Amino acid sequence: MSTTTDFIAELIRAVNDIEKLTHYEVSRLLDRSIDTIRDMRRHTGDAGIHSVRDVLADLRLSSERVQDLSAEQVRDALVDAADVLRSLKIVLDRTE
């Protein structure tokens, strides 16, 4: 498996064990997601996609406000991150 695939799996595991995670751990996962998405966007040339920019803004807000989020909101943010990463990985795999 690739590093991206491993990270997507890590995000999904976190969703399934959300009650075991601390606020700090969730924030770190979201921050790593943001960094990885930005890096992958540079490689795909899709830096201007509006919806990805919106997801990044939502992920940043979720990371900063993680203590105020419900478990369902945290799950949604982690699933969104995994979904964007999966989509970008598919695009990258096609171009290689």
Rank of each mutant, 00 (worst) to 15 (best):
T3S: 13
D76K: 08
K20Y: 10
H43M: 15
K20N: 13
F7W: 01
E72Y: 06
V15I: 09
T22P: 04
I8G: 04
I12W: 09
I37G: 08
L78P: 11
E19G: 12
T4C: 03
R38K: 10
D76P: 02
I12C: 00
A57Y: 06
H23T: 06
R42S: 09
H43R: 15
L30N: 06
D6R: 13
T5Q: 12
H43L: 14
T44I: 15
H43P: 11
M1P: 07
L11A: 10
Y24N: 10
L69W: 03
S27Y: 11
V15W: 14
S63Y: 05
V15F: 05
D46K: 03
I37K: 09
S62T: 11
R60T: 03
D68C: 03
E64H: 14
L78S: 14
F7R: 01
V74K: 08
H23R: 13
V15A: 10
D31I: 14
F7I: 02
T36L: 11
D46I: 03
T4M: 05
E64T: 14
V52C: 13
R41C: 01
L30C: 01
L29I: 00
V26K: 10
T3V: 08
R42K: 09
E25D: 14
S63P: 03
L59M: 02
V26G: 00
D54N: 00
V66I: 12
I8W: 09
S27Q: 05
D54M: 02
V26E: 04
T44P: 04
M40R: 15
I49M: 07
Y24A: 06
A71N: 11
I34G: 00
T3A: 12
E64A: 14
S63I: 07
T4V: 11
V55C: 03
G45L: 15
L21F: 15
R42G: 03
A57N: 11
D58W: 01
Q73Y: 01
A77Y: 13
F7Y: 07
S27T: 02
S70T: 15
R53P: 00
